[in-house]
Every structure is written in structure tokens, then in C-alpha cells.
């Protein structure tokens, strides 16, 4: 018998690298890392077939903490990098990690278009309503009255609503997770990876250093009272009216993922020169 030996699925631990996180002890991102590695193990993937792409910020440090292929790019541009990678290499499982600053502020435009494009990516945004790497400035999801050095007395700006934006822009799967529940987060990430097209998982991930009051999110986060819908209108109403603490899959669309035209047979590049040649039509 020459049947290949079936390797046993790897454990979550085997998806972690030996490089140690710089996050503050107590940070929700530790839990997200645990959830990501657990989800990859549950999906029976291998690290070399997974790429984790990120931008800049606390959350974006994740790639090097995994044993997968990683891409730690520039601030705000993780989605384009992941888009290029997935289009060029559809065989890879591509996860994108971001935060509320990286993903919703500097990278906001790419968020809209990644949702629209509906490429088979899983976008995990660790949202802590603050810029951590630059020492606590307000982000697009920060409450208007949260006072900081850069915005004393608060920004006075209303919060960005990432899930509604994702829905309106065409994301195919929308979920909210809470880092206080790593197993639940892992399960949501797993579902997101399995769902075709662009899957968006917003993870409430407290910043214990600049927003210690977020430790109380534990009391507020709860499973969403109803299951996911595939009706964008219903999903819109639910997302617009929820208090931001309903955890679970909130929308599961049926849109076909983005497909790039593919030639059945590859021509030699030289054949393209025929279009420039000075030959008569039909000669």
C-alpha cells in the first residue's frame, strides 16, 4: 500500500511560534492569539499553508507569534496585501489581523473595498477603542467623551460602527467576538474561515493599560439573542440597534466570492506580440 500517511491534526500550541508577545499582561490580544491558533488547529490546517497578514499596532503583532507564514506590513494596508496574496495564491488560507486604528482609521478605505470585493479572506479586528502602540489616543471606535491628552474632554465625534459599515459594503460574514471567551472566539474564527468570501470578525479585546475600565466588558458581553440571518435588511436593523455587546455570528451572506478570470490554457508571452506585429488581418 502506497497510501500517504495521514498526519494527525496539529494542536493549537503547534501554531504558536517561540517568539514571545510584547503585549501587556492582561491584554485581550493574548486571548485572540490563543483563539486563532485553536481555530487553525480545529480546521486541521498546516502552518505552511496559512498566511497571517497585518498592518501596524498592538494587534498587528500577531503574525510573528504564530508558526504560520506572516506578513507584518505598513500601517493600515493589511487588507490590500492580503488581497494580492490571496488572488496570486488562492491555495493559501489567508487571515488578516488588524485593530480599530489600523483597520478603521488609516485603513478605512481598504475595509470598504475588501468587503465589496468579497475575496475569500478572514479579517479579524481586535477592537479596544484606543491606540495602544502610541500611548492611548482616541480611535474611530472611541466613545466621544473619552478624554485623552490628544483630545482633552473627548473627541466629541460619534463612534464608527464597523459591523454596519461591513454589511453596507458587502461583507459576506459578520461576527462579533469577545476576547474574554477565547473558545467562543476560536469557534467564530473557525466559522469565518470556513465561510466563503470576505468574513469579518470584530473582537472586543480590552486594553488593560489605557482603558482599564474595559475589564468590565466581561459583564456586558453576552451571546446574541438570535442566530445569524442571511437577510441584509434584517441584519442592518439588528446591527444598528444592538449595544455593541451581542456576541456571535450576526450576518451570514450568500454572495459568491470574488473570482479572477482564469485562462484554461496558458499561452506563451511571445504570442502577445502578435497584437503589435505589422501583419495584415488574415495574412
Amino acid at each position: 500500500m502506497n497510501a500517504p500517511l495521514q498526519a494527525a491534526p496539529l494542536t493549537a500550541k503547534e501554531f504558536k511560534s517561540d517568539y514571545k508577545p510584547v503585549w501587556c499582561p492582561g491584554c485581550g490580544d493574548y486571548s485572540v492569539l490563543a483563539a486563532v491558533t485553536k481555530a487553525l488547529a480545529n480546521l486541521a490546517l498546516r502552518p505552511e499553508n496559512v498566511a497571517v497578514v497585518s498592518g501596524i499596532g498592538c494587534s498587528s503583532r500577531i503574525p510573528a507569534y504564530t508558526s504560520c507564514y506572516g506578513f507584518h506590513g505598513v500601517h493600515g494596508r493589511s487588507l490590500p496585501a492580503a488581497t494580492g496574496l490571496k488572488v496570486a495564491r488562492p491555495d493559501l488560507t489567508v487571515l488578516v489581523a488588524s485593530g480599530d486604528g489600523d483597520g478603521y482609521s488609516i485603513g478605512g478605505n481598504h475595509f470598504l473595498h475588501a468587503c465589496r470585493r468579497n475575496i475569500d479572506l478572514t479579517y479579524i479586528v481586535m477592537d479596544n477603542h484606543v491606540y495602544g502602540m502610541t500611548k492611548g489616543q482616541p480611535s474611530p471606535t472611541t466613545e466621544p467623551d473619552w478624554s485623552s491628552k490628544l483630545a482633552p474632554g473627548g473627541t466629541g465625534l460619534r463612534e464608527f460602527h464597523p459591523l454596519v459599515i461591513a454589511l453596507a459594503s458587502g461583507a459576506n460574514f459578520i461576527a462579533r467576538a469577545f476576547s474574554g471567551d477565547p473558545n467562543g472566539t476560536a469557534a467564530l474564527i473557525e466559522q469565518a474561515v470556513r465561510h466563503p468570501g470576505f468574513s469579518f470578525v470584530e473582537v472586543l479585546s480590552p486594553c488593560v493599560t489605557f482603558r482599564p475600565e474595559q475589564r468590565a466588558w466581561k459583564e456586558r458581553a453576552r451571546p446574541a439573542p438570535v442566530g445569524p440571518t442571511d437577510d441584509p435588511a434584517r441584519a442592518a436593523r439588528r446591527l444598528m440597534t444592538d449595544d455593541g455587546f451581542n456576541i456571535g455570528v450576526l450576518y451570514q451572506g450568500k454572495r459568491a466570492p470574488y473570482g479572477v478570470p482564469v485562462a484554461a490554457k496558458h499561452a506563451a508571452p511571445e504570442s502577445l506580440a502578435a497584437g503589435f506585429a505589422l501583419k495584415e488581418v488574415g495574412a
Binding site: T11, C24, P25, G26, C27, G28, Y30, S31, A34, S179, G180, D181, P182, N183, G184, P206, V208, R215, K218
Partner: peptide, 26 residues
């Protein structure tokens, strides 16, 4: 290591003896 029973889940977010990540402080 034994395989876990099918449809295995804790009723709490994590196993009862697992300390939550957010309990640390530097």
C-alpha cells in the same frame, strides 16, 4: 493526549480551572 469527546464544550467560556488572560498585570 486523548482526543476530546465529540461536541465537547465547557459551559463556562474556558475550562473551569483555566485562569482568564485578563487576570494578569505586569
Amino acid at each position: 493526549v486523548p482526543a476530546l469527546p465529540v461536541a465537547f464544550a465547557w459551559e463556562t467560556p474556558e475550562a473551569p480551572e483555566t485562569a482568564p488572560f485578563e487576570s494578569l498585570h505586569y
